[in-house]
């Protein structure tokens, strides 16, 4: 009826300055990156090569799928899965003590937790390729070097996820076991492990999905798996070979993601 109702209420005035500053910072960062970049130099025949790659992907080298010599697509893909599988398994075992070290539970001295978390960050940041090359020095250029690289690199992330699971543990179940007269052993067996195990398995499966991707990269430095034939095919410009390998990687990763994802959904 009166004019005041026709107006929207005034906006709440908050201090917006930090927000504007953050936006300005992000914008400045982007401008800085674009301005300082040297010219976008692209090879003159890039279009042609891109075209041959595309035609290679659509005309894959089917003969490479299975030859029975251990160097074909199926064998190297299986080897990739094996590297990721056993690597993740090793890393899950190594991660457990690290996780208890880094977990921030109440009876822990803060320096213990902090140093554990810092160490895990350092492991996570250490480039996996460098690690693989160090292991190749020790055990030779083989799939085993890839297993060790995946196994040790994954600890950085897996132990972090494990420690978060330990931190989020609900004390109620353990307390009720204690109040019913359970010993410490009973608390571990009846309250802690049943709560923790699904979470740990789920984290491990998630890490396995990422390890499959790592394992297909490590072949670039000679640590086994599908990466080796791919890098050879690229440098030999055998695009139909590249096409079938890419196809194989896409199918393998999709399948593993699907299977692991449906198990994880069932667990939680």
């Amino acid at each position: 009826m009166d004019a005041t109702n026709k107006k929207l209420p005034p906006r709440e005035r908050k201090n917006e300055w930090p927000k504007y500053l953050a936006w300005a910072f992000v914008a400045a960062l982007i401008i800085w990156a674009f301005v300082g970049m040297p010219a976008f130099a692209i090879k003159p025949n890039a279009g042609q090569i891109g075209g041959s790659i595309m035609s290679g992907i659509f005309h894959p080298d089917w003969a490479y799928v299975y030859r029975g010599d251990g160097e074909d697509l199926v064998s190297t893909l299986l080897q990739t899965i094996a590297i990721a599988f056993i690597g993740t398994f090793i890393s899950a075992i190594v991660s457990l003590p690290f996780a208890f070290w880094a977990a921030n539970t109440k009876h822990e001295f803060w320096l213990v937790t902090r140093s554990g978390k810092f160490l895990l960050t350092a492991i996570r940041t250490f480039p996996e390729i460098v690690l693989a090359l160090m292991f190749i020095k020790a055990v030779g250029p083989s799939a085993f070097a890839g297993v060790l690289a995946v196994g040790f690199h994954s600890v950085g992330m897996l132990a972090k996820l494990f420690s978060e699971a330990i931190e989020n543990l609900d004390n109620g179940a353990g307390e009720s076991v204690t109040s019913a007269g359970g010993t410490r052993m009973d608390v571990t067996m009846l309250a802690t492990i049943p709560q923790l195990l699904p979470e740990l398995i789920s984290n491990t499966l998630y890490r396995f999905e990422l390890a499959i991707r790592s394992a297909s990269i490590l072949g670039i430095v000679g640590a086994g798996g599908i990466g080796t034939p791919l890098i050879f095919a690229i440098s030999a410009r055998a695009w139909s070979r590249v096409g079938i390998i890419l196809l194989g990687i896409v199918i393998m990763v999709t399948l593993v993601d699907f299977i692991s994802g449906s198990i994880r959904k069932k667990l939680i």
């Binding site: 670039i220 791919l230 590249v242 993601d257």
Partner: peptide
């Protein structure tokens, strides 16, 4: 999303 970054880079 399935193709690992380093393989994409090599391509």
């Amino acid at each position: 999303r399935t193709i690992p970054d380093l393989l994409l880079a090599a391509l």
